[in-house]
């Protein structure tokens, strides 16, 4: 693949003795939406959390193998730099409850001690909220607490918070699983808008969501990467038996 942004080589992930991921090899193309799907416990979320090294936070968790962001080995990069380049949006909206909407969006800068002028801050906040299609809904209430927003709005606030750091890649861990269908749709539309500037990796349980939004799909099963291909090809003509069984609803 010519324009790959992330290259995963022989990645293994463990919780204590239990092997969660075994020998994952994958190249992720730039400015595309990549869906990771598979039944519960297949390791897709662990894989996602390996990419920004959140996996290692859990006591007893470790990894083997390499992941390269462009040419840099992420296990040799400064952790703080890595996480600024790879943003993440979580399953449940998690805005900082002590902060206003404005402070939430700019929190990546303030918490990291990066000083900005008032004007710069306002620009970043407006720009990020616009990109997260939340600006028109909250522009008059920027100084209210983020937790007063609806679930879908909170999730878009969290997306804006990631966008503000201008990452290369944004990881989404089932971002719509706690939202109603209308809010989910908005997030999906948003993903399609975002892909011209960012590479998006999204974990989803929802096959339709994967089919609708993603350009590439990776199918995980029991900690192994069974198949990775263009979404259209993977859904219309799966190469592996397990993939076919899964997308036709025979298990999972």
């Amino acid at each position: 693949m010519e324009n790959s942004i992330l290259k995963v080589e022989h990645l293994n992930a463990f919780f204590g003795e239990a092997r969660i991921l075994s020998d994952i090899n994958l190249e992720i193309p730039v400015n595309q939406i990549i869906a990771l799907m598979g039944p519960s416990g297949c390791g897709k979320t662990t894989f996602l959390r390996c990419i920004n090294r959140l996996h290692e936070l859990t006591p007893g968790a470790r990894t083997e193998g390499n992941i390269y962001l462009f040419k840099d080995d992420i296990y040799r990069m400064n952790l703080i730099v890595l996480r600024r380049k790879i943003g993440m949006v979580f399953q449940r909206p998690n805005p900082f409850p002590t902060m206003s909407i404005f402070e939430n969006v700019i929190s990546g800068y303030t918490l990291n001690g990066i000083s900005l002028s008032k004007l710069q801050k306002e620009e970043i906040v407006e720009d990020s909220l616009r990109k997260a299609s939340l600006w028109t809904e909250v522009k008059d209430n920027l100084h209210k607490k983020g937790t007063f927003l609806s679930g879908g709005q909170q999730q878009r606030l969290c997306i804006a918070r990631s966008l503000s750091m201008k990452p290369d890649i944004i990881l989404f861990d089932e971002p719509t699983s706690s939202l109603d269908p209308i809010s989910s749709n908005k997030i999906e539309e948003l993903l399609l808008n975002l892909k011209k500037d960012y590479t998006i990796i999204i974990v989803t349980h929802n096959l339709q969501q994967a089919a609708r939004t993603s350009d590439y799909t990776a199918f995980f099963y029991l900690g192994e990467l069974i198949e990775f291909n263009k979404t259209q090809l993977l859904f219309s003509n799966p190469a592996k038996r397990q993939t076919e069984d899964y997308i036709s609803g025979r298990f999972g």
């Binding site: 920004n52 959140l54 936070l57 952790l79 703080i80 730099v81 890595l82 996480r83 600024r84 943003g87 993440m88 979580f90 399953q91 449940r92 998690n94 805005p95 900082f96 409850p97 929190s107 990546g108 918490l111 990291n112 001690g113 969290c158 918070r161 990631s162 750091m165």
Partner: peptide, 17 residues
Amino acid sequence: PGTIKEASLALGVPYYK
């Protein structure tokens, strides 16, 4: 909730901060 801590770490904020 642990995810609030993770949200901060995922923004590249060091642990002590």
